[in-house]
C-alpha cells in the first residue's frame, strides 16, 4: 500500500449549486412573466400580517401567488387561505440547516403546485431568520425585508448581510412607536450606513399605515 498527499485546486463557490438552481427558477418565472418577491425578516417581524393586508388590498388589481416557507406548521398558509389566492406551503425541515431558510431547491419543489401562468406576482415568505435567508438566492427579482421597530436600532450594523441585500425595507409595527424607546432617526442612519439610500416604507399591520404605498410599489412592478 502506498499513500501520498495530493492537492487539488477546486475554486468552486460554496453557493454555486444553489445559484444555478435559482437561475433555473428565475427562467421559469421570466417565462411566466412573474414578478417575484423574496420576503425576509427575523421571526415575527410581521411578514404574514403584511401579506394579509397585501392580498386584501390588491384583490382584483393584481394576481398574487404565495409560497410559504415555514419550519413545520401550516399556520401562516392557513391565515392566508381565506383570500383564495394560489398558495403553496414548502416544508423546510429536511436536511442540514434546512429549517432556517428557503433555498432554491425548496422553492423549485413548491413551484409544481403553483399556476405560475395565472399570476403576476409571486411572494415568497421566507423562514423568519435574520441571517440565513440572505445567503440563498431563490430566483427572485427583488428582496423585500420586513424589519420591526421592536428589534432595536442597531440591527443593520449587527446583521448587515440581509440589510445590504434588501431592495426595499418595510419598517413595520410603527403603531408601537409611542410605546417604545425607539430612535427612528438613528435606525435610518444605521440602515443607510449599510445600504445607502435603500427604499423604505413605514408600515403597520395594526393600523394599515403604509400599506397603500407598499401595494402601489408592488403593483407598479407586478403589472409591468
Amino acid at each position: 500500500m502506498h499513500r501520498t498527499a495530493v492537492k487539488k485546486v477546486v475554486l468552486e463557490g460554496v453557493l454555486d449549486a444553489n445559484d444555478a438552481l435559482a437561475e433555473a427558477n428565475r427562467q421559469r418565472f421570466d417565462h411566466a412573466n412573474n414578478f417575484v418577491v423574496n420576503m425576509m425578516s427575523s421571526p415575527g417581524a410581521g411578514k404574514t400580517a403584511l401579506l394579509e393586508h397585501t392580498l386584501d388590498r390588491t384583490l382584483g388589481k393584481v394576481r398574487i401567488g404565495v409560497l410559504e416557507g415555514d419550519v413545520q406548521t401550516t399556520l401562516d398558509a392557513d391565515r392566508l387561505a381565506r383570500f383564495h389566492t394560489p398558495i403553496v406551503q414548502v416544508n423546510t425541515d429536511a436536511g442540514f440547516g434546512g429549517e432556517c431558510h428557503l433555498d432554491a431547491n425548496m422553492v423549485r419543489s413548491g413551484l409544481a403546485e403553483l399556476p405560475l401562468h395565472d399570476i403576476d406576482v409571486l411572494i415568497i415568505e421566507n423562514v423568519g431568520n435574520l441571517v440565513c435567508p440572505a445567503e440563498f438566492k431563490v430566483g427572485e427579482d427583488v428582496r423585500v425585508m420586513v424589519y420591526a421597530i421592536t428589534e432595536g436600532e442597531e440591527k443593520p450594523l449587527k446583521y448587515p448581510l440581509m440589510f445590504r441585500s434588501a431592495d426595499l425595507v418595510l419598517i413595520n409595527k410603527m403603531d408601537l412607536l409611542p410605546h417604545l424607546h425607539f430612535d427612528l432617526e438613528l435606525f435610518l442612519r444605521n440602515l443607510d450606513a449599510v445600504n445607502p439610500g435603500v427604499g423604505r416604507i413605514l408600515t403597520s399591520a395594526a393600523t394599515g399605515q403604509g400599506i397603500d404605498e407598499w401595494c402601489s410599489w408592488l403593483m407598479e412592478r407586478g403589472n409591468a
Binding site: 495530493v6 492537492k7 485546486v9 477546486v10 468552486e12 463557490g13 453557493l15
Partner: peptide, 28 residues
C-alpha cells in the same frame, strides 16, 4: 464618498483540497 465598488470581502469559495491518494503498488 460611499460610491464604492466592492473588490474584496464577498468571497465564499472552496479554494483547494488536500487528499490522501491510496494506490497499491500494482496500480502505481
Amino acid at each position: 464618498e460611499s460610491n464604492l465598488q466592492i473588490t474584496r470581502g464577498e468571497e465564499l469559495y472552496v479554494e483547494s483540497l488536500e487528499m490522501e491518494e491510496q494506490q497499491n503498488n500494482e496500480e502505481l
